[in-house]
Simulated assay, not measured.
Amino acid sequence: MSRMNEGDEAWAQKAMALLELTSLNADDTAERIVALCERAQTPVGNVAAVCVSSRFAGLARRTLDDARAREIKVVAAVNFPNGGASVATVASETQAAVLAGADEIDLVYPFNAHLAGDKQIGPEMIAACKAQCGRPGMLTVTLETGVLRDPQLIHDVCRMVIREGVAFLKTSNGKQIVSATPQAARILIEAIAELGSQVGFKASGNVRTVTEARTYLEMAQARFGPYWLEQKRMRLGGSSLLDDLLMRLGVEA
């Protein structure tokens, strides 16, 4: 594929800097996580973060530190993938990941319990995770918008989560039938704007190409302005997006 024009290349470079390179497979191994951390350091710049299962948080942090890539964050996914309803289990998992070296925690929202009518479990779980994080700005909440489905329900959950004081809202982890969609992303972005919050936004799940990434970047920029497109406000989560970014930027994946 030929190289992009300057405008497209700028978007690809921006996407690279905001990428949260992900490996959240049931059969992940230590070798695979080490390889993920190595891939996160590219000839055209490092990605923003790697997102791994909580059990691999320590390994990922040590691997990146050994490579002198401390600036790449390690995000540990907890309550993954099915959004269980045990607050105690999630608190324990979060504590272990933080102690192992995770820079950030990605909590899968207890969507099934919420759909079954339990509206208190979400705030309780978020509070328990925040208590274990130890400092502000660490907690992402993944809503699994493809499971919640109903736009009004997604909007209501977004507002509740924002009020709990999290760092990021995230569309999905890519393990459900429906993952990130522009429609869901728009709901999250509007909820953030409505509450005048400093909460960031992560588009994740089936964001595989530069074109798809640009859709979400342009959506956020249109609502909040170009300053929003920095790592503390915007992330793009995925495993295969890096391949397309490297190819489009003229680097062998």
Rank of each mutant, 00 (worst) to 15 (best):
M1E: 07
S2I: 03
M4L: 15
N5E: 10
E6S: 09
D8L: 13
D8V: 03
A10N: 09
W11R: 08
A12T: 04
A17P: 01
L18K: 04
L19F: 12
E20R: 12
E20G: 07
S23I: 10
L24H: 12
N25K: 12
A26K: 07
A26Y: 02
D27T: 10
D28H: 12
D28P: 05
T29W: 09
V34L: 04
A35M: 13
A35E: 10
C37K: 15
E38I: 07
R39Y: 11
Q41M: 15
T42R: 02
T42H: 02
V44C: 09
V47H: 09
A48M: 00
V50I: 00
C51A: 13
S53V: 07
S53I: 01
R55W: 09
R55I: 14
A57N: 02
A57T: 07
G58I: 02
R62W: 09
R62N: 13
T63E: 11
L64A: 10
L64R: 10
D66K: 11
A67H: 01
A67S: 08
A69F: 06
I72R: 03
K73Y: 13
V74S: 00
V74Q: 01
V75M: 13
F80R: 00
P81C: 04
G84D: 03
A85H: 05
T89F: 10
T89V: 10
T89H: 11
V90R: 03
T94L: 05
Q95I: 02
A96P: 01
A97R: 14
G101S: 10
A102N: 09
A102E: 11
E104P: 12
E104H: 05
I105Y: 01
I105Q: 10
V108T: 12
Y109K: 03
P110M: 11
P110A: 14
N112K: 12
I121M: 03
M125A: 09
I126F: 04
K130A: 13
A131Y: 12
Q132N: 04
G137M: 05
V141Q: 11
L143E: 05
L143S: 06
E144F: 06
V147Q: 11
P151G: 05
H155S: 03
D156R: 09
M160T: 15
M160Q: 14
E164H: 06
A167C: 10
F168H: 05
F168G: 06
T171R: 08
S172N: 10
N173Q: 06
G174L: 05
K175I: 07
S179T: 15
P182I: 08
P182Y: 09
P182A: 05
I187G: 03
I192D: 08
A193L: 01
G196H: 07
G196Y: 06
Q198S: 14
V199D: 02
V199E: 03
G200M: 05
K202L: 00
N206Q: 14
V207P: 00
T211A: 14
A213P: 12
Y216L: 07
E218C: 03
A220G: 15
Q221A: 03
F224Q: 04
G225S: 00
Y227L: 04
Y227K: 05
W228H: 09
L229S: 01
K232C: 14
K232T: 15
R233S: 14
R233V: 01
R233H: 14
R233I: 05
R235D: 00
L236T: 07
D244M: 00
L246W: 07
L246T: 03
R248A: 14
R248W: 00
V251H: 00
